[in-house]
Amino acid sequence: GAPPLPPYSAGGREVTMKKGDILTLLNSTNKDWWKVEVNDRQGFVPAAYVKKLDSGTGKELVLALYDYQEK
């Protein structure tokens, strides 16, 4: 199953993602919540729920390892 959710501390809205989604990583300075862009929406997802990909394009991409439903 998915890892436990860290307390929400990102101070911005969250976004929903599905397992297998490829998201653009915008900011990973917060260790628990990373800012991503998905379907032209920006928001935060739990860092433990995604994995960085080596895209080779200069853009940082992450793979959704679990479904996440915004609150």
Rank of each mutant, 00 (worst) to 15 (best):
N27R: 05
G11Q: 13
V62K: 00
K35H: 13
E14K: 11
V50M: 05
L65M: 09
V45G: 00
M17F: 10
K51H: 09
A47C: 05
W34V: 04
T24R: 12
L61R: 08
V38H: 15
Y8L: 10
Y68W: 07
S28I: 06
G56Y: 14
E37W: 07
A64C: 08
E60D: 13
G58A: 11
L61P: 02
T24F: 11
Y49K: 02
P46C: 03
G56C: 10
D54R: 09
S9V: 09
T29S: 14
Q42R: 12
S55K: 09
K19D: 02
A48S: 13
A64G: 03
M17A: 03
A2G: 09
L65V: 06
V38A: 14
L25W: 01
T57P: 14
D21V: 04
P6L: 02
R13Y: 14
W34L: 04
L23Q: 01
G56P: 15
G43C: 04
N30W: 05
Q69L: 12
W33K: 00
I22F: 05
V50N: 00
N27Q: 11
P4F: 06
Q42M: 10
R13V: 13
P6Y: 03
A10P: 15
P6V: 02
K52Y: 09
N39V: 12
V38F: 14
S55V: 13
L25V: 06
G20E: 01
T29D: 15
D32C: 09
R41T: 13
K19Y: 04
L65H: 02
A10M: 15
W33S: 01
L63M: 14
A2N: 09
V62G: 13
V50Y: 01
A10K: 06
K59H: 09
F44L: 05
A2C: 08
N27A: 07
I22Q: 04
D32K: 06
N39C: 10
D67V: 02
G20Q: 02
W33T: 01
S9D: 10
A2L: 13
T24C: 07
L23Y: 10
L65D: 01
A10I: 12
M17P: 00
Y66M: 05
G11P: 15
D40K: 11
R13T: 10
L61E: 08
W33F: 03
K19N: 03
G11R: 07
V62D: 00
K51T: 12
G12F: 11
P4Y: 05
D21P: 01
P3G: 05
W34H: 02
K51P: 01
K51R: 13
V38W: 07
A2T: 11
P4I: 08
L26H: 04
Y68R: 02
V15E: 03
L65R: 03
V50L: 13
L5P: 10
L5F: 06
G58M: 09
D32Q: 08
Y68E: 00
R13C: 13
D67A: 05
L65G: 01
N30P: 04
K51W: 07
T16G: 13
K19L: 05
K35L: 15
G58I: 09
T57Y: 12
N39P: 05
K18Q: 07
T16W: 13
L25Q: 01
P46G: 01
S28R: 09
K31P: 14
Q69K: 13
W33D: 00
Y8D: 09
S55D: 12
K52N: 06
G43M: 06
R41Q: 12
D40A: 08
A2M: 12
P7I: 08
K19H: 05
T16F: 10
K19M: 08
P7G: 08
K71I: 10
A2H: 10
G12K: 06
V36M: 01
I22H: 04
V38Y: 12
D54L: 11
L23S: 02
L23G: 10
N30S: 10
A47Y: 02
L63Y: 08
A47S: 14
D40Y: 10
K31F: 08
K52H: 08
R13G: 12
A2P: 15
L65W: 03
V50K: 00
Q42F: 07
K71V: 13
T24G: 06
L5A: 07
R41W: 06
G58F: 09
L63T: 06
A47H: 02
L5N: 06
A10R: 06
W33G: 01
E60M: 12
Q42I: 15
D54Y: 13
E14N: 13
D32I: 08
K19F: 04
R13I: 11
L25D: 00
T57K: 10
K18Y: 13
G20K: 02
P3Q: 04
K51Q: 13
D32R: 06
L61G: 03
P4D: 09
E14I: 13
N30E: 06
A48D: 07
K35V: 13
P3N: 05
E37R: 10
K35Y: 15
W33C: 03
P7H: 11
W33V: 01
V45Q: 00
V62I: 06
K19Q: 09
T29N: 14
K18F: 10
G1L: 08
R41F: 10
Y8E: 08
T24D: 05
N27V: 07
K51I: 12
K71C: 12
L5R: 10
W34E: 01
M17D: 00
M17V: 07
P46R: 02
Y68Q: 01
R41K: 10
T57W: 11
G1Y: 07
G11E: 13
L26G: 01
V62P: 00
S28A: 15
V15P: 02
D67R: 02
K59V: 14
M17R: 00
A48H: 07
P3L: 06
Y8W: 11
V38R: 15
A64K: 00
A10F: 10
L26F: 04
D32L: 10
G58S: 11
K59S: 11
K31E: 10
E70H: 12
S55M: 14
N30K: 05
G11I: 14
E14P: 15
D67P: 05
A47R: 08
T24H: 08
V38E: 04
D21Q: 14
I22L: 08
Y66P: 00
Q42N: 07
T57H: 14
P4Q: 09
L53S: 03
E70F: 10
D21H: 04
K18E: 05
I22T: 05
T16Q: 08
N39M: 13
V50I: 06
A47T: 04
L26A: 03
P7L: 07
K18C: 08
I22W: 03
L61H: 06
V38M: 14
N30Q: 10
D21W: 12
G43S: 03
N39F: 09
G20A: 02
A2S: 10
P4R: 07
L65S: 02
E70S: 14
M17K: 00
G1N: 13
A47Q: 04
V62E: 00
L61S: 07
K18G: 04
A10D: 05
N27G: 05
D40M: 11
V36H: 00
K59A: 13
L63E: 11
N27K: 06
A64V: 08
K31D: 13
D40W: 08
K59R: 13
V36N: 00
K59I: 14
Y8M: 12
G11M: 07
P46F: 03
G58K: 09
P3D: 04
E70M: 09
N39Y: 13
F44Y: 14
L5C: 06
Q42W: 11
D32M: 11
V36S: 00
G43Y: 07
P46T: 01
L63F: 08
P4K: 08
L53I: 14
V45E: 00
Y68C: 02
V15S: 03
V45P: 01
A48Y: 05
